[in-house]
Simulated scan of single mutants.
Amino acid sequence: MTKRNEPRTNWTKEEVSSIYHQPLLELVFQAATVHRQWHDASSIQVSTLLSVKTGGCPEDCSYCGQAARYHTDIKVQALLPTETVLSHARQAKDAGAQRFCMAAAWREVRDNRDFDRILEMVKGVNEMGLQVCCTLGMLTEEQAQRLREAGLYAYNHNLDTSSEYYEAIISTRQFDQRMNTLDNVRKAGLSVCSGGIIGLGETDEDRISLLLTLATLPEHPESVPVNALVRVKGTPLEAQPKVSVWEMVRMIATARIIMPASMVRLSAGRIEMTEAEQAWCFMAGANSIFTGERKTLLVTPNPAISEDMEMFMRLGLNAAVAQTKTSCEQAV
């Protein structure tokens, strides 16, 4: 195996910009080379994401159909019963998922009975041998610690976009509050999952700034989701143009080069991608996807896990074997 240096956390904006703006084929070649130095390029982590509490969120994220202030077709759903969630986790494991992620449309975690029920869900899914991930909004270090003690492996809290463009997309939360949550997650010994969305109207410079923020954290996120905007009717961004696959490839490839040890997840937007376009993303360094038996990713369409397994077979890819170490023995 090629000798690897420790991942850098001192990237400059000029360096990241130079990588990002390379001719596309050269960029993909470099990313594919780095990918093979750090990972098994035939292995894809399969994660299933379930919305355990849907809609009614007080935030005003312009892309999100779960915001209470927007008039969308998404139905508000209270926190699911624990056994219902555990049943979905069993189905996900049987279908080949290695990680089960639970999402609640909350602004922040509150110390109440709902949080106690989340802790029960985490414990139950962990006992199945699945990696457990949650995305529940902002949380304190103490809450992160309680999640870890219940068996949580990873916590997702996306930055969404650059600090410079952030206020154009969200006004009910500050960028620094997102950064504070990532800090609390890391202090609790949890694996960090954090990425962003492209297609929000941001510039290339905003995308570079987002990547730079992630790549200059004291430790890189173990997982970096790259999402293409899914245009939800009724949200302020419903009329945005579809993100080009080449923009996704460029974003994934740059993330792979500057955060070589991280899992780079091809996340939202796959439903509008052909199999060939997804293959380009895998070539550029994506080695993780979200899938689900209900053909949804939270509240937006997503390929079914059976379709993904057929795609893997055609492309010569394999679902990665789950790692079931505790969160303080992270090896994502």
Rank of each mutant, 00 (worst) to 15 (best):
M1G: 10
K3I: 15
R8F: 06
T9E: 05
E15V: 08
S17P: 04
S17I: 09
S18L: 07
I19D: 04
Y20M: 06
H21W: 10
Q22F: 05
P23D: 11
L24I: 08
Q30E: 12
A31T: 02
T33A: 15
W38N: 12
D40N: 09
S42K: 13
Q45K: 15
Q45Y: 14
S47G: 14
L50G: 03
S51W: 00
S51M: 07
G55I: 09
C57P: 06
D60F: 06
S62Q: 11
G65A: 07
R69A: 14
Y70F: 12
V76K: 14
L79T: 05
L80E: 02
T84E: 10
L86A: 09
H88F: 10
H88K: 10
G96C: 06
G96T: 02
C101I: 06
C101H: 02
A103T: 12
A105T: 06
D114E: 14
D114G: 13
F115S: 01
F115I: 00
I118L: 13
M121R: 02
K123C: 15
G137W: 08
M138P: 03
E141I: 12
Q143P: 02
A144E: 05
R148D: 06
Y153E: 11
N156T: 11
H157Q: 05
L159S: 04
E164I: 14
T172V: 10
R173H: 12
Q174T: 14
D176S: 13
M179K: 13
S191W: 11
G196T: 11
I197M: 00
G199D: 00
L200C: 00
D204N: 07
E205S: 03
L210F: 11
T213M: 05
A215H: 01
L217P: 06
P218H: 09
E219M: 12
E222A: 11
V224S: 00
P225R: 09
V226T: 08
N227W: 00
A239Y: 15
V243Q: 03
W246L: 15
W246G: 09
V249F: 08
A253F: 04
I257Y: 08
I258K: 11
S262Q: 02
E272Y: 07
E272P: 06
A276S: 07
M283G: 07
G285H: 01
E293R: 14
L297D: 05
T300F: 02
N302H: 05
S306G: 15
M309C: 10
M311P: 11
L315M: 01
Q323C: 13
K325H: 15
T326W: 09
